[in-house]
């Protein structure tokens, strides 16, 4: 019964958010938030945010600690469901349907919106099994096909050359940077449309950071990427659009060059020039 009641995202019918689609300005938005709020109990963590991720572009979300940027990102694939006291209001639309629709199939949503976490979190399994985990979930799959997916994913994550000889060794034996790229490869293996990255470089050294940034650059175009970062230089380097959150509110959202060179708001200016944060 449960399964039948679950609505596939592809059956857009009941989910269509009728009258007022977000302003498109001739652009193709994959994810769009409209007056989206998140509460932890009584705490209003994200206040009426209006942010959109354009297809094939990189959107950076910046802001000081505790401003709600990670909370917002984790809502996009409903990872915040793990927090009992968390509830939302407003609309968060993915591919034309509301992510928080009660009958939405979360598993399918998460398969289409992949996520890379702050700390590398490979499973304590072999490198191969880590990558194969997602595809195997989708159902039985031929070994040759799986091998292909593993190789493609690792190549896309620029890790193939480093690990091709030891696919069966434990993933926990990799360095921190390699582990994070493995996590990216693992997320790519399920062929998501959107890739959410929650401060993916904060636990890494500068060299690994620059490799991940290169990787993000390569992946953009093919994937829609949203990246939360503390590092303003990083946001400036990798993203096309930047959203600035402050104390739960979206202060400013726009093209990255514009936001960093001529911010519209005083708070944005103060933050990017290092007055606080």
């Amino acid at each position: 019964m449960m399964e039948k009641n679950k609505m596939k995202i592809s059956e857009k019918t009941a989910f269509k958010t009728d009258d007022k689609d977000p302003p498109k300005n001739g652009k193709d938005y994959v994810v769009a938030a409209r007056d989206f709020s998140v509460y932890y109990g009584n705490f209003h963590a994200v206040k009426n945010a209006n942010v959109s991720f354009e297809r094939g572009k990189v959107t950076a979300i910046i802001g000081p600690s505790g401003c709600g940027k990670s909370t917002f990102l984790r809502c996009v694939n409903r990872m915040n469901d793990l927090v009992d006291s968390c509830r939302t209001s407003g609309e968060l639309i993915f591919d034309g349907i509301n992510i928080y629709h009660p009958r939405l199939d979360i598993v399918e949503l998460r398969r289409r919106i992949g996520m890379v976490f702050q700390r590398p979190n490979p499973f304590p399994k072999s490198i191969y099994d880590n990558i194969a985990y997602g595809p195997r979930l989708a159902g039985s799959i031929k070994k040759s096909e799986l091998d292909g997916i593993v190789e493609t994913s690792l190549r896309r994550a620029a890790l193939w050359d480093e690990v091709k000889d030891r696919l069966n060794s434990n993933a926990l034996g990799l360095s921190g940077g390699q582990q994070q790229r493995l996590c990216i490869a693992r997320a790519l293996a399920v062929r998501p449309e959107v890739l959410l990255m929650d401060e993916p470089c904060s636990a890494l050294d500068p060299k690994s950071t620059s490799r991940i940034e290169d990787l993000i650059d390569e992946l953009s175009g093919e994937y829609t990427i949203a990246i939360v970062t503390h590092n303003m230089q990083q946001a400036a380097r990798v993203s096309h659009y930047t959203a600035f959150f402050y104390e739960g509110s979206l202060i400013e959202f726009g093209k990255t060059e514009t936001l960093f060179t001529s911010p519209q708001k005083q708070a944005t200016n103060d933050y990017i020039t290092g007055r606080f944060g």
Partner: peptide
């Protein structure tokens, strides 16, 4: 078992039981 394992498994589209069975129990 670190919460990150649960998040990783769920993030890849595993159901609850599947994530327990394939990642959390072995750990």
């Amino acid at each position: 078992v670190p919460n990150s394992f649960r998040e990783a498994a769920l993030g890849l589209g595993a159901g609850k039981w599947k994530s327990i069975y394939s990642v959390i129990l072995p750990s």
